[in-house]
Design a protein around this nucleic acid. Structure first.
Length: 426
DNA sequence: TCTGGGGTCCTAGGACCC
DNA sequence: TCTGGGGTCCTAGGACCC
């Protein structure tokens, strides 16, 4: 049996941990540049605010109901997530973190009649220990556990934990469960199914397998089996990421080549740090810059390039030199670039590196320099040592806005900034 | 005027080989 | 004039997740 622990309105709940005055009040957490809504309290949901809606479209509502808005604060969310996951991990023999706010545990170490009380206690412990409300779903497959957790979230009478552990309960739960809300059934699939009159999870689970395969292929069949109680979705952790991305939308479009290079260099730095952290090397990078997809009044421009690296590496400066060499001839003047990103792919474990016979680079020396830089930065902060390209081009050329990102409602780094921690104690 | 970021998996179709 | 068939590998793009 699995139990899924799913944090309720996670980002909003994180903000509320340090702002108890916001309990029972509408709260939103916003995406980068305070652009879209990415987390909503129940009160905000009740006001009709949808996930992903741009903030400017609901300004009046925010004003009228005095909705508290926060810029996203991922170091806070990451830290609280870690605390929740640690408690889960301590209470099972097998734990899989699925996302920043969800984790699966197995309950096989307990007799069935203890499953629900055990999870109810975990919900209380997490709330007391971390301050985050959690809902738990218990079932023989992960997809059913997801269904169960939604019921646990919706009905307080479950005391935070709902079990789908008999066939009767399964049929009853699926009968009133919207097909759109099933894990693994996205927009396209639910539109297809709705066309066939399949509107609930139960109707879907009652289809025959061949029909499902024709309509939704392999992923659909896996979901179908899971809803029928067969455990077949493997979410076992991928230890090392197979691709690493850093990308940003700019608050104001950027036209200046040097400013874009600065951004790409920062993205490269961020990807390379993550790459070294998981002890991997990459052999391919992709970068892109493009204009806003929402604007019809300007010439659209999308520049993207894949660069294959001659030798697998994790060295920021080396990777950046390949990136810039490919970027410069592709750059176009007088374009309003709104977003840029860097992707590292074809990632291999560091120990699988193959030496290149014609490699002229002194890799030992560069690795020593890189690890020295990493050490300094871990002590003195990420800004303490930078590559030249990462420095802001001075003086700011033309009329470019100097600050590319907006985060006007950022909460303090309550749990990771020592000054904040001391203040709380005082 | 203002619209996020970071991932994985699957499939179809092209390139290439014999 | 008539122009095979089967297999593998790779990639781009779609769909989905949070």
């Amino acid at each position: 049996m699995y139990a899924l622990a799913d944090c309720n309105n996670f980002f909003v709940s994180c903000e509320r941990v340090f702002r108890p005055d916001l309990w029972n009040k509408p709260v939103l957490v916003l995406s980068g540049n305070d652009g879209c809504v990415i987390s909503r309290s129940n009160e905000a949901k009740a006001l009709g605010i949808k996930m992903g809606v741009p903030l400017y479209q609901i300004r009046d509502l925010v004003q009228k109901h005095q909705i508290a808005c926060f810029s996203s604060n991922f170091s806070l969310y990451g830290d609280l997530s870690h605390r929740v996951m640690s408690i889960l991990m301590r209470n099972t023999t097998r734990f899989e973190q699925y996302s920043i706010d969800e984790g699966f545990i197995t309950l096989n170490h307990l007799p069935p009649e203890q499953h629900k009380p055990f999870c109810e206690k975990l919900v209380r412990d997490i709330y007391q220990g971390v301050g985050i409300p959690v809902s738990m779903g218990i079932a023989p497959s992960k997809t059913l556990a997801k269904v169960a957790s939604k019921y646990a979230k919706k009905y307080p009478a479950y005391h935070g934990a709902c079990a789908i552990d008999t066939d009767n309960k399964r049929l009853k739960a699926l009968g009133t469960f919207d097909i759109t809300d099933v894990w693994g059934i996205g927009r396209k699939a639910s539109a297809k199914l709705t066309d066939y009159g399949i509107t609930t999870a139960l109707k879907f689970a009652s289809m025959n397998e061949r029909q499902v395969r024709t309509l939704l292929h392999k992923p659909g069949v896996l979901t179908w089996r899971e809803l029928n109680g067969i455990d077949c979705i493997d979410t076992s952790e991928i230890i090392a990421k197979q691709s690493i991305t850093t990308s940003r939308t700019f608050a104001h479009p950027i036209s200046d080549r040097r400013l874009l290079e600065q951004q790409l260099a920062n993205f490269c730095d961020s990807c390379a740090r993550k790459l070294r952290m998981q002890r991997s090397l990459c052999t391919q990078i992709i970068f892109y810059i493009h204009t806003s997809y929402f604007r019809t009044d300007i010439t659209p421009c999308h520049i993207a390039q894949t660069v294959n690296l001659p030798v697998a590496t994790d060295n920021t400066a080396e990777i950046l030199s390949y990136l810039l060499a490919a970027f410069r001839p592709l750059f176009r003047e007088n374009m309003q670039f709104k977003k840029a990103g860097v992707i590292f792919s074809r990632i291999i474990p560091a120990e699988a590196a193959m030496a290149d016979l014609f490699d002229t680079r002194d890799r030992t020396k560069h690795a020593a320099l890189q690890s020295t830089i990493d050490r300094i930065r871990s002590r003195q902060g990420r800004q303490s040592v930078l590559l030249g390209t990462q420095l802001s081009p001075l003086p700011p050329s033309g009329d470019e806005q100097s600050e590319p990102y907006i985060a006007e409602h950022q909460s303090p780094l309550y749990t990771t900034d020592i000054r904040q921690i001391l203040q709380i104690k005082i």
